[in-house]
Design a protein around this nucleic acid. Structure first.
Lengths: 118, 118
DNA sequence: ATTGAATGCAACCTCAGAGTTGCACATCAC
DNA sequence: GTGATGTGCAACTCTGAGGTTGCATTCAAT
């Protein structure tokens, strides 16, 4: 039931859901600061277990916000700005659309008021 | 609890949490399309009860995305683009910051590689 | 080959929030 | 006034996300 009106809408859905969690935002911050690190390393900088971090990284990965690269026996995660950029643009477009519609509605309302005033 | 930071600080936190729910996004869409409507009217265009809609509107209101105006015995809700705009800007800035950090990290990594190559 | 450290998988627990129903309280229309 | 319509409040259910623990597995290193 998750239809998105805009055709090119990527996974705005999942990006928003991913960003809604504060722990995940913190993880993204750590990732952006440290570049490529493993889930175990990240777990040290966050008040949850490694497993929880892994789950969060899976969500972020599904949203396209991070990517994992297997290097030997460990997995290095890194942040990917593309999906965030896309969502930011989507959001800005949505805000503009609201503005447009509101202006239109206001215009109609004022016209109706003039009509009634006569 | 839910104190409303009037004016600037739009609590990106609560905006993201509010937008994470698909039903709330749908409600925002309906609101943007119809201008000022009541919760009862909105409930007709969404597959949940009026009470559920009221709760969602409360969340959206706390995030600054909508505002309710009491007119007689009914409450007209309308969309407010400001908070969304602010969040979009925040997100774009965050993406830019990630880009900056990633570029920096890449530079450092390449320098280290050169160092090791000698 | 064995040992140690890292990841992956799975079962389990807990609680916030999405949704419902029922009823009391306003408010408009007559 | 009375009746009808709309809103607000409260109790309740229930699913899923966030978190934990335990163990199996993989890989590097000596």
């Amino acid at each position: 039931m998750t239809d998105q009106p805009r055709g090119a809408a990527p996974a705005v859905d999942s990006v928003l859901a991913a960003l809604a969690d504060p722990t995940r935002r913190q993880l993204l911050d750590l990732l952006a600061a440290q570049g490529e690190v493993t889930a175990t390393t990240l777990a040290a900088g966050v008040p949850v277990s490694r497993q929880a971090v892994v789950k969060h990284l899976a969500v972020l990965d599904a949203a396209g916000l991070v990517s994992g690269t297997k290097v030997g026996r460990e997995v290095r995660y890194a942040v990917r700005p593309a999906a965030l950029n896309a969502t930011a643009r989507w959001m800005a477009a949505l805000a503009a659309d609201w503005d447009r519609r509101l202006a239109n509605i206001k215009r109609i309302a004022e016209a109706a008021e003039d009509e009634a005033r006569r």
